[in-house]
Amino acid sequence: MLKETPSANLNIHIAGENALIIYFVEQASSEVSAKVQQAELLIRHAMKDDLSTDVIDLIPSYASLMVMFNLTTTDHHQVRNKLRTLLHNLEDKSPIASNTEQAVLVELPVYYSIESGPDLAVISKRTNLSVEQIIDIHQAQEYRVYAIGFAPGFAYLGDVDERIALPRLNTPRMKVPKGAVAIADKQTAVYPDVSPGGWNIIGLCPIDMFNATATPIMPVNVGDKVKFKVITKAEFLALGGELPENLGVNTCPSQ
């Protein structure tokens, strides 16, 4: 029998009558996110076997993993025990751990411009950076997919460089266009579809973030790395991108 030595950082809490939530630590970091991803992979693997009738669904996020179970076949004690046994060596740099650290890198093309990024001008004013510098900072680094939620295919990417980590708009837009690349604090994302939203829009991405009829449905998964690549307007249009008629140009009172 496997020894049960839960790590000090593995806290399993109650979420609801048929849900437990595993908390890793209290702040987000790529190390913590990697641990969430490892735990998710281990549980998904077990869902094909030992946990097949017990675990219904998982929600990985920044530093937690919610496990929803089937109350007609199991109970919270049993799920808790199975999770502890399954995840007991999560702290160790086990072979599974090192394999999952080689995250997939997904490149997403972005047409950054005043035309496609209506908040660039305001960000430039607030940060004293030129539009070119803002674009350069945003596309220079790799981001980690911390969580997927809010809407189908909405991937929370981080961490945005502090120099351009602007807070949400005071008044959210009623209509953020599909493909909008946007920033909110240390997070960035591509809006998978038209929706209301309060993030600062800096460009447009022509790639579908969620397509129910495509395989895969989404170009990214939690734990993947994302790198944005600058493209021209012509390339954006050639990749199937569409410029929305009214991007809701930011009318900052100070302008």
Binding site: A15, N18, S61, Y62, A147, G149
Partner: peptide, 30 residues
């Protein structure tokens, strides 16, 4: 809090202190 998975029936307390019981079509994380 750091956005995390929301289960069915979860009772959320936003800044105005008025509870919201989250039902079937809730956002998955919040």
């Amino acid at each position: 809090i750091l956005s995390e998975g929301i289960c069915h029936g979860a009772v959320q307390i936003p800044a105005d202190g008025q509870p919201i019981v989250l039902m079937n079509d809730r956002q998955t994380i919040g």
